[in-house]
């Protein structure tokens, strides 16, 4: 159980980067996004730094697996939007 507790804070080396990104995102969300200026994504460099740290420190199997799976799900969804026929074919062949 002690080990589990330790792993729960496995991403704490990223705490500063996380805080910087969260601050940036929260500001963007309440000052721009909800006011209709959503075309431009901001906080990109903060996000990249935080994400790089996460992929290095996310020790927990459950979560890192999810981090990878999440990327796949995203790209599948995009394919689906771009070419729905391909997905229908894949579905039928499975």
């Amino acid at each position: 159980m002690r080990e589990k507790k330790k792993s729960s804070s496995s991403t704490s080396p990223c705490a500063h980067l996380r805080a910087a990104y969260n601050n940036c995102f929260n500001r963007w969300y309440s000052e721009k996004f909800v006011k209709g200026q959503w075309e431009k994504e901001e906080c990109v460099s903060d996000w990249q730094k935080y994400r790089a740290c996460l992929s290095e420190h996310l020790e927990d199997k459950h979560l890192s697996r999810f981090l990878e799976a999440e990327g796949l799900v995203g790209s599948i969804n995009q394919d689906k939007l771009e070419n729905p026929a391909d997905i229908a074919d894949t579905g039928a062949s499975q």
């Binding site: 804070s9 991403t11 704490s12 996380r18 996460l54 999440e70 995203g74």
Partner: peptide
């Protein structure tokens, strides 16, 4: 205990 953004 911990909240991390995995994707956005």
């Amino acid at each position: 205990l911990e909240v991390d953004t995995l994707s956005r």
